[in-house]
Design a protein around this nucleic acid. Structure first.
Lengths: 213, 213
DNA sequence: GTATAAATCTACACCAAGTGCAGAATTATC
DNA sequence: GATAATTCTGCACTTGGTGTAGATTTATAC
């Protein structure tokens, strides 16, 4: 398969990494909007034209690192042990993520992660790109649900968008708290409680919502 | 309040409408990406700088017409009759929308609406802008839920994102079918069935999803 | 009605994200 | 080592969007 990387391929890998590293470093230091792609190209010792040969947009310089996580929920659903419902598998995985301080749960307070979160929040175009990321996660999860839980197309899609939206909201909530100064350890119990509530809503529905007014 | 429009205000209104009309017409005719804002400005007999005084971005030339609908779900929840749950009020409103072929349900097959849908789908930046629209609807609905159903902050947000996501998915499904040639009348029964299913999932949760594998 | 102040519009120069293209430099192949 | 295929570069160009100075228009005071 790929037993023979070849000089050309290796060089491309290195160039790509150099561009990405330079970009992240500059963006973290000065902010996404404050750094032009020309500056990134210069820092990576590459022409602007070459930079765009490796990354189609400025946003991709940041977001490409999350590409693996796009199908994470789908993977969890596909690899769940027999006898487990998709939802409980996802809940278990999310709670484990909280415990491990997985950045995708929003519960990681390493300075670099905090700065990254802030950088993304401050850049509208990056935020928009994150929505496309969400959309990809929804599609992947819908496919996984359809195939492993034998759901009809639309049901799978409806379930997927609900699940991804809730996870996303939980994650954003945690990130916002940490951005506000709370430590991950201090936040953890609350994050767990919130996650339990979110997944409970997913499982049992909003039927218990107060009717009155 | 506004009993004295004044010449200045009236002229601004007319200019704004002229710009918007010219934009929509050109976009529908040639596609969003194929028309530059300079061309829109010229068609509206206005300088490019003036155009950007009225609309902050190119996307806003299209999306500003949906501004009223952003708080629609929130309004429905707030004005629901006593004794009604938020969810059943929203379901009723969505089903009524289907019956009336409200474009926001995706079930309107007027040629102009179809072209508009297609135009949006073909323009990534417009699609991204629609996500921001969704986010606004979520916020508004969360506030309405919090205030009229006495829900805690996070619960309201979680419920809101689920609801808006489901409505959006239902609407997109309808729009996609119509874009594929189906007529609104032919699609209506299916759209109703899908909506019932979506709201049932919201109400009773995903707990009934198959556990096996 | 006219003068003056305030809001608005315009032209023009400018920046940054991308793209197209022709040729130079590099890598693979024989 | 020659040649073919990739890749990189520099440069010109388009487009969305902004800053600014001055012209034009509208409102207000007399």
């Amino acid at each position: 398969m790929d037993d023979k990387p070849g000089l050309r391929e290796r060089k491309k890998l290195r160039t790509r990494a150099a561009i990405s590293d330079a970009a992240i470093a500059l963006f973290l230091e000065h902010g996404f909007n404050q750094v032009s792609v020309a500056q990134v190209a210069e820092a990576a010792e590459v022409s602007k034209r070459t930079l765009f040969a490796y990354f189609p947009t400025k946003e991709e310089l940041v977001v490409h690192r999350l590409a693996d996580h796009e199908a994470e929920s789908a993977r969890v659903v596909r690899t769940r042990p027999p006898g487990t419902s998709p939802l409980s598998a996802l809940r278990g995985h999310f709670l484990a993520g909280l415990q491990e301080r997985d950045p995708i749960t929003g519960l990681n307070d390493h300075p670099m992660v905090l700065r990254l979160t802030r950088m993304i929040d401050d850049a509208p175009t990056l935020l928009a790109r994150m929505d496309r990321f969400k959309a990809g996660a929804e599609r992947a999860l819908a496919d996984a649900l359809r195939e492993t839980a034998d759901l009809p197309e639309l049901t799978a899609r409806l379930a997927a968008v609900q699940i991804v939206s809730v996870q996303w909201t939980l994650s954003r909530e945690n990130a916002a708290r940490l951005a506000g100064g709370e430590s991950a350890d201090a936040r953890h119990p609350g994050a767990v409680a919130d996650a339990e509530q979110g997944f409970a809503l997913l499982e049992h529905g909003l039927g218990s919502l107060a009717p009155r007014r």
